[in-house]
Amino acid sequence: MRCRAPIVIAAAAMVVVGCDPGVERVSGLVTRIDTLGVGRVQGFTLRTTDGTTLDFVFDGGTDLSAGGWPPDHLQEHLALAEGVAVEYRTDRGRRIAIRLGDAAWIGS
C-alpha cells in the first residue's frame, strides 16, 4: 500500500503519523531527563511549540541508523536547547521512544 506523507503544520504540536503503523513523530525541546547514570537514561520530557509537555520512556535502545542517536545524547540537546525529533509508539498509555534525531530549530 502506498504511504502518504502527512502535512506538518509548523506551529502545531507537530505530531506526525508516519508510514509505520503505530509510529508517531513529534518535535520539541527536551526539558527534563530521568537517568540512573550514563547509559541508563529512563525517560525524558519534551516541550512542543504549542507548550504541550510530553513524557517519554525507553524500552530498550533507540534506532541508531541513519542519523539516529542514543538516549544519552539528549543531555547535550537539553544543555544547548537544540530541538529533538522523536519517533515513538504508545503502549498502555506510555509513550515509548524508539528513535531520536536532530530537529530543525523549533519556533524560529
Partner: peptide, 25 residues
C-alpha cells in the same frame, strides 16, 4: 562502534561507572 547490551542500549565503560557519572560530556 558502541557495543550495545541485550536490550540494544549503550553500556557505560568501566571508567565511567567508576566515576558514577550521570551524563556525558
Amino acid at each position: 562502534r558502541p557495543v550495545l547490551d541485550a536490550n540494544g542500549r549503550l553500556q557505560p565503560a568501566p571508567w565511567t561507572t567508576g566515576w558514577d557519572l550521570l551524563t556525558e560530556p
